[in-house]
Computed example of a mutant assay.
Amino acid sequence: MTDTILTESSFFHEPSLQLKVVKRDPELPFRLHSHEFNELVLVIAGTGLHFTKDEEYQLREGSVCFIPIGMQHGYKDIEGLALYNILIGENMLAKNFLDLSELPGFNSMFMTSGQIPTLLLNPTQLSETLPILEMMEKEADDQSFGSGSKTLAYSCLLNLIITLSRIYDETPRENNQRAHRLWDVIAFMDRNKHRSLSSEELTEIAHMSTSTLNRYFKLATGLSPLEFHTHKRIAYACTLIQKRGLSIAEIAQATGFSDPNYFSRQFRKIMDTTPKEYQKIFTNRLS
């Protein structure tokens, strides 16, 4: 079978900006293929298997992986998988850019060869990353002359790379791998972002004691299972606010908070702003 190679000319129509953001919703199964460019993948929903000739990687919401030029990979066993592909030309990743090379996470995540570095973002990290992606997608596609869009798109790329590199530095590798043992619990949380959960429900799904589950979750995410689920519910609330059309009380109800005041306190604790302030900021940004 002839190897499938995705070429630069198919995606980069502006030689001075070898950067393209492609949202795939849904992502489809894809046989082994490689690229003439780097690819950064960030999963926003669903599950699937990301595979190479030698290994398979479980994908879920928050999964991040970096595929260097020439590396063969593909997707299979997909269920509602949605992701962003950030296509990055070789000349866009300049290791000698100021102090970028001093970031250990940058070297480990973006300057490796012969392997696919992976990372798992928690819901809060994912919700903070998505606006950077959305801005990069908008500016990279802007063909207006004299608008500064190319520079802004590149600044978004640097922002994303530094953000992910710092998260990579702060996440112990062994602990991050342990998160992959908790897929069933996290998938159950995904299906129940509209309500609160009990420790008993989660331990039954995990087939672990409460103390063991708490220990693994703390090691993998820095949060207890119930705190992690609260973060997911608040991230879901952010999505509902961004879609607009619902009141804060309705969003609280939709995410399982019967008391709007308690919802507001939890939202502020996690997002460092109130739901109304977030709604106002996001509405102004869109305007």
Rank of each mutant, 00 (worst) to 15 (best):
N91S: 13
L87F: 10
S155E: 14
E174Q: 13
N159F: 06
L219E: 13
F106A: 08
L83E: 04
L93A: 00
E134K: 15
F188H: 12
H207D: 08
P104F: 03
G114N: 07
N85H: 12
L223E: 08
N175L: 02
R166Y: 10
F97Y: 12
E139A: 08
E134S: 12
R215E: 05
G114E: 06
N175H: 14
H194V: 00
G89K: 08
L152Y: 09
A220H: 04
T151N: 11
K150N: 13
L219K: 12
E170F: 09
G148D: 02
T151W: 08
L98Y: 10
E170S: 12
S199H: 06
D169Q: 15
F97G: 00
M189P: 07
S165W: 10
F97T: 06
M135S: 14
L98P: 04
L81R: 11
P131F: 04
Q143N: 11
D184F: 10
I167F: 01
V185K: 10
L103T: 05
P117F: 01
K150C: 03
Y168D: 08
C156L: 02
F97M: 08
T163I: 06
Y84E: 00
I186H: 02
G222C: 02
E201M: 06
L182P: 07
S165V: 09
T112D: 06
E200A: 13
H180I: 07
M92K: 11
L81G: 04
M109C: 08
S211K: 09
E204R: 14
L157A: 02
F188L: 01
S209E: 07
A94V: 15
I205R: 09
G146R: 11
S209I: 02
I88L: 03
F217D: 00
I161D: 00
L202S: 08
S147F: 03
A153S: 09
E134H: 15
A220T: 00
T212S: 13
N122H: 14
T221D: 04
H207K: 12
N159P: 01
T203G: 03
